[in-house]
Design a protein around this nucleic acid. Structure first.
Length: 423
RNA sequence: AGAGGAGUGGCAGAGUGGUCGAAUGCGGCGGUCUUGAAAACCGUUGUACUGAAAGGUACCGGGGGUUCGAAUCCCUCCUCCUCUGCCA
């Protein structure tokens, strides 16, 4: 969530930024936020003045009672009745304005970083890096949804029976390959200084709001009605919320965490012929990296996280590219996002396997995540996160790209984890 | 899940209707003393909104209520502890 003080200080840049996102009525929306904030202040001031008078009278009554002057006390009580009624009105008005302001601020996305390109669609995402070679596969190469049947390693039909579409069952070497990747990713993250955590995979409403999934993407999360809990769409939610309502000391920064969790996404309305097999699931596994740092360090941190993800893909021998997302494709809460896509040889298409973002203070403002700087002033921190990595599409790419007449070759770095070199 | 108890500042812990944003101790910070350190002593030490400032307002688990006035009384929710039950 943007801060009104920021909006006032950098109005021109914010308007430009919102236009990059094709956000409608940028000027009017920001002006409205500033106006509502003014109203908030003035109604707060009237209410405070009212309460101050009531407090003064209450003290006076207390003093009179002590001296036994009950008649005198009763006399001033008349005024307090008026004040009480007024305070109630003023408080209601204040709450109304505050709520209206908050509702408005919830609708305003983060301001894109200066380097975010303008664009009309995902076609305009900027390719900033291309690494490796296109896999050369024989004509007979099969897409992963055929391979998994042939080798009996992932079973969609079984998942449909016990749960529903989009919940595959990993079997035998498929299950082992997935576990190998998880362990490999976690070991790499640990080596890079990301402290491992295992958070809950159900979260409450406050957590969903703080990282920005709520109220914006309510329908995308599974919800457990009986207990008012949401299944996480990404480990970003619980891990970042570890630091909700926290004031860190400068020497605790940066905070770096990695966590492995299943992720759950309803993906309502986003299904079609182009999302076969492992390309899109309701439940999938992912190792997430999260970083919290001082504002001046966050873009260096973003680069560091990108290098980490790039390193993983290189070790797995995958052909990949990095995209800088354009204004219309970048996520609601993000200021700058790099997507990583691997080439899936048999499908002949790029699959997104990671998204690394800097949220600047957008999440921190909702989280109330701050630190005391060298002047002992508390100020908002920057939050970042990225997938390192999402499993199913990596598996799809490995299966497709590494297939030959003898089966599927396991990447060298994974063999110590799988215990076999071929499926 | 049932019965009982409890939630107060970084921590411990007092406070059962007014002078309480809250005693006291510990911790933190600054200082005196010291070659230095420790001890001792003195001072200081929550967050947010608002205001140029002085100040004002709110916050004693969350929300609501009673009262001129609530940390204190009432309702409700949450969390923790003890006992009983159940369970990986």
């Amino acid at each position: 969530m943007l801060q009104v003080s920021q909006i006032i200080a950098e109005k021109e840049r914010f308007i430009e930024g919102l236009k990059k996102r094709k956000f409608p009525n940028a000027e009017a929306t920001l002006a409205k936020a500033i106006e509502l904030d003014e109203m908030r202040k003035s109604s707060q001031q009237s209410l405070d003045a009212n309460l101050a008078e009531a407090n003064a009278i209450a003290k006076e009554i207390g003093a009179l009672m002590k001296q036994g002057q009950h008649a005198e006390a009763d006399k001033i009580k008349i005024r307090t009745a008026e004040l009480k009624a007024q305070s109630k009105d003023l408080a209601e008005k204040k709450e109304e304005v505050e709520k209206e302001l908050q509702t408005l601020l919830y609708t305003i996305p983060n301001i894109p970083h200066i380097s975010v390109p303008f664009g009309a669609s995902e076609e305009d995402n900027e390719v900033v890096k291309l690494v490796g070679e296109m896999p050369v596969l024989p004509e007979s190469a099969l897409p992963h949804w055929e391979l998994i049947k042939q080798y009996d390693i992932i079973d969609f039909d079984l998942g449909i029976k016990i749960t529903g579409a989009g919940f595959p069952v990993f079997k035998g070497k498929g299950a082992r390959l997935q576990r190998a990747l998880v362990n490999f990713f976690l070991d790499e993250a640990t080596a890079a200084g990301f402290g491992e955590v295992q958070p809950p995979i159900l979260v409450n409403e406050a957590s969903g709001i703080a990282t920005g999934q709520l109220p914006d993407k309510e329908g995308q999360m599974y919800f457990v009605n009986n207990d008012n809990l949401y299944l996480i769409p990404t480990a970003e939610v619980p891990i970042t919320n570890l630091y909700r309502d926290v004031i860190l000391n400068e020497d605790q920064l940066p905070v770096k965490h990695a966590g492995f969790t299943p992720c759950f996404r309803r993906e309502a309305g986003s299904w079609g012929a182009h999302v076969r097999g492992l390309n899109r699931l309701h439940q999938f596994d992912k190792v997430e990296i999260v970083q919290i740092c001082k504002p001046e360090d966050s873009y260096k941190a973003l680069d560091g996280m990108c290098n980490h993800v790039a390193g993983l893909l290189e070790k797995l021998g995958l052909h990949y590219r990095i995209l800088r997302l354009c204004g219309v494709d970048i996520g609601f809460t993000s200021a700058l996002t790099y997507d990583f896509e691997v080439f899936s040889g048999a499908q002949k298409k790029w699959l997104e396997v990671s998204s690394v973002s800097n949220f600047e203070t957008y999440q921190a403002n909702r989280l109330k995540l701050r630190y005391k700087d060298s002047d002992k002033k508390t100020q908002l921190l920057h939050t970042l996160n990225g997938s390192a990595l999402a499993l199913p599409r990596i598996i799809a790419a490995i299966l497709e790209n590494n297939q030959d007449e003898h089966g599927i070759r396991i990447p060298e770095v994974l063999i110590p984890y799988t215990g076999f070199d071929r499926i």
